[in-house]
Simulated assay, not measured.
Amino acid sequence: MWHKIQTVGTIREFIDTNAAIVPLAATKHEGVLTTLTHFLSNPTQALGDSAFNAINPFLEIAGIISYPVASIIMVVAGLMYIIGFREKCVSWITKTTITYIIVQLLPLLLRTAINSIVAA
């Protein structure tokens, strides 16, 4: 099985640039047609999708930044716990944990809110 060589075409067919342009152009038109069909079949859902796609990069950035920020706050809270500020550091750890979880779930919550608004 591993030592079989099967020729599927010549090198000239592989390097030919005219053959590579046609599928690429067809793919671009298929994406436009799919988007247009989706918008015409359900315009409110398409508007909700476009609104979420516009906000999603900012949510991704917030999700990525939240991990190091939460880690720094947890380390400071741990040091404060060692020093003796127990009540304050437990409060910091609790608030940081809840905030981190909410920030990570924010895309899901926002998507659910947009879908509920669009469905209404």
Rank of each mutant, 00 (worst) to 15 (best):
L79M: 15
T94P: 00
D49L: 10
P23M: 07
V32C: 08
I93V: 07
Y81N: 03
L40N: 10
V69Q: 01
S66W: 02
V75T: 03
T94E: 06
A51P: 02
T96N: 11
M80G: 15
E60P: 00
S91T: 02
G78K: 04
K95V: 08
E60H: 10
A25Y: 04
L33N: 13
T34C: 05
T44R: 07
I98M: 05
T27H: 08
V103H: 00
N56C: 05
N42S: 14
T34E: 10
Q104A: 05
T37D: 11
S50Y: 04
I73Y: 04
M80T: 13
M74L: 14
I61P: 00
Q104K: 03
I101F: 05
I98R: 04
E30V: 08
T97W: 06
S71A: 15
H29K: 15
C89G: 01
I65L: 15
G84C: 11
F58D: 05
S91I: 00
T34W: 07
K88W: 06
G31Y: 13
N42E: 10
P23E: 11
V103M: 04
L105Q: 02
F52P: 04
L59D: 13
V75W: 09
I73D: 01
L105E: 00
P23I: 12
S71K: 02
T94V: 05
F39G: 02
E87M: 02
T27N: 09
T27L: 13
Y81A: 15
V76K: 13
V76A: 07
